[in-house]
């Protein structure tokens, strides 16, 4: 397999005195979609923030395309080609859809490139074109999520970090948005790192999956293998196992929030 574009090694991050990530290592290869699953508080969002430079790690290395980027300022990270589409959409509410997209391209200055990217975004999200003059705060939740993804695309990234794109959306909308993410990956070869609680949707989409639990990676594997795995089925997909086994493994005793 080709060299990973993003390589995370032994990252430790703190929220004040609380250790939110306890030594995480993972790889994302070009053209891949990598999903990170885990319950609330597992440290998924913290991991994303550490990669995008909003938080600085205490220890460990993050290598992007051969360069170490841990602890860089966020705008430097965006310039290198990593864009973070944050949890909860975080659009600029009083700016129009068009202006939001323009700010997505803040780190670019080539006007031709920006226009091309805008057309690309509109081709994947036609609804944004219809509403380009509307204030982003007046869009529906699903449209705001599309805008957040489109705004991320405008940075012309080499990898997108997507934090819970399904948050608070109806199953139908989740299907639509994940469909678009799949097309972006197929057609534009967009590399993605996806954090999700909706394990089923995330594993359907991804090539590779990691499972995080209280700041650590406890499991990883090809997405289709994970989908079949008993643990994943029990704890994330809600599949009930028939018949109780004698030896309960540690995972099964856990309480889930």
């Amino acid at each position: 397999m080709n060299e990973p574009i993003l390589r995370i090694r032994n990252i430790e991050s703190f929220y004040g005195p609380i250790m939110a990530i306890r030594g995480v290592s993972l790889d994302v290869h070009p053209g891949q979609i990598v999903s990170i699953l885990g319950a609330n508080g597992a440290g998924k969002t913290t991991l994303m923030k550490t990669v995008s430079g909003v938080m600085d790690p205490e220890k460990g290395r993050i290598t992007f395309d051969g360069q170490q980027i841990q602890g860089s300022e966020p705008h430097k990270v965006v310039q290198k080609g990593i864009v973070h589409v944050p949890e909860g959409r975080e659009v600029f509410p009083l700016l129009t859809v068009d202006e939001n997209l323009s700010l997505g391209a803040y780190t670019l200055s080539d006007k031709g490139q920006i226009d091309h990217d805008r057309d690309l975004v509109f081709s994947y999200f036609p609804v944004l074109k219809e509403r380009r003059g509307q204030e982003a705060g007046t869009l529906s939740g699903g449209q705001q999520q599309m805008l957040a993804i489109g705004r991320g695309l405008m940075a012309n990234p080499r990898i997108m970090l997507l934090d819970e794109p399904s948050l608070g959306l109806s199953p139908l909308l989740v299907q639509e948005i994940f469909g678009i993410l799949k097309r972006l990956n197929d057609e534009q070869k967009m590399t993605m790192m996806l954090v999700e609680q909706n394990a089923n949707a995330a594993l359907e989409l991804a090539h590779h999956g990691y499972v995080m639990e209280i700041g650590r990676i406890v499991m990883d594997g090809a997405a289709d293998v994970l989908l079949q795995s008993e643990d994943i089925q029990n704890f994330y997909l809600g599949v009930q196992e028939e018949g109780a086994r004698e030896n309960r493994r540690w995972k099964r005793k856990k309480t889930w929030r």
């Binding site: 300022e73 705008h75 310039q79 864009v83 975080e90 700016l95 700010l103 803040y106 780190t107």
Partner: peptide
């Protein structure tokens, strides 16, 4: 202007402005 828009963005949603690479 780009800087003017960035100022508006940074005041409306500072975190998102960081994510967009606005210093």
């Amino acid at each position: 202007t780009k800087l003017g828009l960035a100022m508006q963005g940074a005041s409306q949603n500072q975190l998102a402005a960081y994510y967009m690479g606005i210093p």
